[in-house]
Design a protein around this nucleic acid. Structure first.
Length: 273
DNA sequence: AGTATCTCCTGCGTGC
DNA sequence: TGCACGCAGGAGATAC
């Protein structure tokens, strides 16, 4: 799926090819993503330079001369560099034609992704989709003390709680499951039962797992490819996600599965308390 | 204000 | 072979 490591993999795959290049033309073949692609975007971007690319949570930020394009990959989106022009496929919605024959292709079968725009006349961090995001899990603001104190105010179960982008960004279903297992925390525990010592373990687990997933190029279950078009290889290192009924890597007992907020949770009822 | 549910969408697996 | 069906989920919108 598409969580922080997948977006970061995409960003790192694109940057060396496209940074500093002028965008000759943006072709929006299908603007019907999660929100409509702004009709003015092709005219706004034509002839401008991609200065840099950043990431905020799961939003890929592409800084052009007049402003920043916000790209979300949703569930099934990919943004990758093409070696040469090719006939557009069914779900190839947007082409970015840069100088030097560099082409970025945005493909998204389920169209949960998005491409939006924030002009430099408005502060980027005040964009409605970015304004209320919590800290970056790999940043210095994401501390055990922060997590612990924030948890005291919520009766939500730990699993849906940590997936709330206002608590921390970038942790979706896969890495929520994995980090809870690594920290030996039961996903159904109320957030306000979290102890400071547990928060310390959990923060380290989240950071470690996200970093490891980035090193492996993300998790490819079905359709994720990074900016270089290659799949990620973290799926084979997953401990619980997608392994319901299989033996726990800690104790050998079968892993349980439940539903929380219509998302699957997989955990070991013996190891996670 | 915090929490729960709904919604968008397509591909894939399953059962008849 | 074909079709109906359920499922997967990021996360904002909506309802309580």
């Amino acid at each position: 799926m598409h969580e922080l490591p997948e977006v970061e993999t995409t960003r790192l795959g694109i940057l060396p090819h496209a940074r500093g290049l002028r965008l000759k033309q943006l072709v929006v073949r299908n603007p019907h993503l999660r929100w409509p692609v702004p009709p003015s975007l092709p005219a706004l971007l034509a002839g401008t330079r991609l200065q840099d690319s950043d990431r905020r949570g799961k939003y890929l930020l592409m800084k052009f001369d007049p402003g920043t394009a916000l790209c979300h990959l949703g569930m099934s989106g990919s943004l990758r560099v093409l070696n040469s022009a090719q006939a557009p496929g069914k779900h190839d919605h947007i082409d970015w034609f840069f100088e030097r024959d560099v082409i970025l292709l945005f493909n998204d079968p389920r169209r949960f992704g998005a491409l939006l725009w924030q002009p430099d006349t408005e502060p980027l961090d005040e964009h409605p989709l970015l304004a209320h995001l919590g800290p970056e899990p790999l940043g210095t603001a994401f501390t055990a003390r922060y997590l612990f104190e924030r948890a005291q105010g919520s009766r939500l179960a730990l699993k849906p709680w940590i997936m709330d982008a206002k608590v921390v960004v970038g942790v979706g279903n896969i890495y929520a499951n994995e980090s809870l297992f690594a920290a030996r925390l039961h996903p159904h525990r109320p957030a306000n039962s979290l102890q400071l010592t547990e928060a310390q373990v959990w923060v380290k687990a989240i950071r470690r797992i996200l970093r490891a997933a980035i090193r492996r190029g993300g998790t490819t279950l079905r359709d994720f490819v990074g900016g270089d078009g290659k799949p990620g290889y973290f799926a084979q290192e997953l401990s619980v996600y997608g392994r319901a009924g299989e033996p726990c890597r800690g104790c050998g007992q079968p892993l349980h599965e439940s539903r929380q907020g219509n998302r699957s949770s997989v955990f070991c009822p013996h190891c996670q308390v």
